[in-house]
């Protein structure tokens, strides 16, 4: 799964995202996400480079997409 982060400081749907902030997975549809990537408005990260906090903590962020926390080290790190 890919993680999108904001390139530059932007305000989208009334929420301000500073440079490097992760964009919520459901905020842009597929077509718009491509547009943002093509125009360098956002940057795409592979999940080995940056995992989505929105997906990892889906019950709290309200996103429909989820990503499991599997590693013991991660569970310990997040005190879960």
């Amino acid at each position: 799964m890919k993680t999108l982060s904001c390139n530059g400081h932007r305000e989208l749907a009334g929420v301000r995202y500073h440079h490097g902030d992760e964009l919520p997975p459901n905020i842009l549809n597929e077509e718009l996400a491509d547009y943002w990537l093509d125009h360098r408005l956002a940057i795409e990260h592979d999940d080995t480079e940056r995992r989505s906090l929105y997906r990892l903590f889906a019950p709290f962020s309200g996103t429909l997409q989820t990503e499991p926390i599997e590693l013991d080290a991660e569970l310990a790190q997040y005190v879960l």
């Binding site: 530059g8 400081h9 932007r10 305000e11 989208l12 749907a13 301000r16 718009l32 408005l41």
Partner: peptide, 20 residues
């Protein structure tokens, strides 16, 4: 900072961008 955000993206993907 709020006063330096400007509308960008046209009608396709309207959002605001900081004129840093």
């Amino acid at each position: 900072e709020y006063h330096f955000y400007r509308d960008v993206g046209g009608s396709y993907t309207p959002h605001r961008e900081l004129d840093a």
